[in-house]
Nucleic acid binder design. Structure first.
Lengths: 226, 226
DNA sequence: GCAATACTTATTTTCGAAAATCTTTCGAAT
DNA sequence: ATTCGAAAGATTTTCGAAAATAAGTATTGC
């Protein structure tokens, strides 16, 4: 693995998880010290992340971590619902036993981690399994473009969820584990109408919750709009 | 404008238009001579294009122009239809007079260029206006993510159309100008059902035509699959 | 003759310094 | 006091060379 790839992974990781907060300038000399490498691999990584809209770039004025805004969150969630519901319908139509087994497996692993609280809690392991579960639902859609857009939108919305995960503030009166279970069941019984409805509700609840949290208490870098 | 940005524009241009054919290795020393600049700006451009899937990259083995395949064309067209029909519905619902005027203007400019045949013909001007027309239809959808995906998919499918445009082979029994006109009219009268049906038909016809052309006569770099 | 190995060449990747550009600071003129 | 402009400093951008890796070629031993 080249240094540029390591730089890309490390920067992406740190941006999505908020260790490099939205709006923060990404100066080459700082990054060079932080990641212990020269400018070249860092610039390559920053350009890739710029193409993914995780960092902003201005000619001759460097890079910054892309800002967050409620407008963008709503847009990302709405597009996600459209893209993922289409993909879920296709997966339900095309998926084979391997696909179904992958969902069962991903859900089981996710629930194991959800059950680990206290000192065993590991936000990042939980987040990785949450991603894997949603990815498994769509795995059989047979559309590389759709899956790429899913990944882009997942990364974009993950940035909004991280602060609330870290704060351990959770929405009252919501059983996310049950939502995942119902979604998996509807999918495995090939009930596309029910599955897509559950998926949409799942995302809208998350979006509403995040909107209420960010609405009162804007984190750094969150644009004022809305 | 920095050299890296020039390199990005130039490479993207040359890849989409087929001057750098699919599968061709993109060696730094060749590109350095071709575009008259050092390695650094070229590598930055290549990394951005890699993130956009217009070039492939293999660690320590360099970059290549991304290959074409009928599978990818079909996927791109299907996703395009979903994304653009959603965006068109939203635009029809939200669009104001400026949006409508933009469509009329773009269609008029496109038709002017369509009418110029013989020595006045300019494939690239035509292509730019074709893009502008389709972009104008969706301009009021109020979703940056949707518009970004539109641009990605437009670039991906444009690569397949270029060879047939250059060859001046046109589908028999098809009046593309009339299709654009009907699409614009249905959109401007806010008939979302009709407009999306026309849009889908428009793309499916193009896809079917390209499939038949590439099916018999595969261009360089077109993978054999399907 | 053939396989394995060392050597040469081609290419990518990385670094460090130079060039270009932007930002800040300081001072002079109004 | 304020504004304008020049100098100083900070930062990005670019280059050219060095290091690292892959690919190709010749050589050796059997």
């Amino acid at each position: 693995m080249t240094l540029a790839e390591k730089a890309y992974d490390a920067l992406r990781h740190d941006i999505i998880r908020g260790e490099l907060p939205p709006g923060r300038p990404l100066r080459l000399s700082d990054l060079s010290a932080r990641y212990d490498m020269g400018f070249s691999p860092l610039r390559e990584a920053l350009n890739r992340l710029h193409a993914e809209r995780l960092v902003t770039a201005e000619s001759l004025r460097g890079f910054r971590v892309a800002p967050l805004s409620l407008d963008e969150l709503h847009d990302a969630v709405n597009v996600r619902i459209k893209v993922e519901c289409d993909a879920l319908r296709a997966s339900i139509e095309l998926g084979d036993d391997n696909w179904a087994a992958g969902i069962v497996s991903a859900l089981y692993a996710l629930n194991l981690q959800v059950g680990r609280t206290g000192p065993d809690a590991d936000i990042w392991a939980l987040e990785a399994r949450h991603y894997a579960f949603h990815r498994a639902l769509l795995a059989a859609c047979n559309s590389p473009w759709t899956l790429e857009f899913f990944e882009r939108l997942y990364a974009a919305t993950e940035r909004y969820r991280i602060p609330t995960l870290l704060a351990a503030t959770h929405p009252a009166g919501r059983d996310v584990q049950a939502e995942h279970g119902a979604l998996a069941e509807a999918t495995l019984t090939r009930d596309a109408v029910k599955a897509t409805a559950l998926l949409e509700a799942h995302y809208r609840k998350t979006a509403d919750y995040l909107t209420s949290v960010f609405g009162m208490d804007k984190p750094d870098g969150m644009a004022a709009a809305v």
